[in-house]
Amino acid sequence: MTGLTSVPEEPRPTEAPRPADTYLLEARALSYRYGDHVALDSLDLRVAPGEIYCLLGPNGAGKTTTINLFLGFLEPASGSAWVAGRDVATAPLETKQYLAYIPEQVMLYRNLTGLENLEYFAALAGKSSIGRAGLREILQDAGLQPDAVDRRVSGYSKGMRQKVGIAIAMAKEATTLLLDEPTSGLDPKASNEFSELLGRMRERGVAVLMATHDLFRAKQTGTRVGIMRRGRLVAERETAELAHADLERVYLEHMGSDGGTI
């Protein structure tokens, strides 16, 4: 199976308006400032179940800030971030029950095994009843080799740690995934596996918001892409509407003369 065929050929969710609580992620005029610098300027964004929304843009465009705002790691200057119909600002702990976060580097306790890490994070998420056998199964579902499960994380590759990250999301039964540059630095095979995993999550109705530089991966995996520049969402497209070359063209168009690197 190749990465290209792994993307399911089913109809994309339509743009038809839905009731607010049917969006798993929603930003309403969301803004953030670092001092005088406007990092995020009145962002409006919605991600529905079964959608993989890819945020594209150069460094400093506001992708990570958006994710941090959804996580409640930052407080918005104005506007609001909503998760599963709840405002992050008023229900910071509750909204996190729906969220799973996979940063560029999934950092785990190096001296503990993959299983022990999962056990801890699952317990933090209130899923302490799963039991070791169940957790082991989840890790394997997430694609971790059975023999790696009981090894210390210090020996894991980046891809393996990411699988533990996915396993945490699965164990937690998160309905929303926030991914920050998940495929950068992965070798093509691992990157491909990761896309497949995301596809499976999507099939279960999970909503995914993924910040990335990788246009190819965005086109292949995403259902929708948003292009950000200087804290603003400057374009939004259904990937199904675009050929790969079109995406690159659209992206570069929006970057303007000051470009910014991909």
């Binding site: 996580l71 790691f73 976060y101 580097q105 950092m107 933090l124 945490i168 937690k172 926030l178």
Partner: peptide
Amino acid sequence: ERGTLPMTLAQPVSARST
């Protein structure tokens, strides 16, 4: 520094209690 703080705080727990 180990990067586990964001992983932990992405869970529904408060920093202070942890």
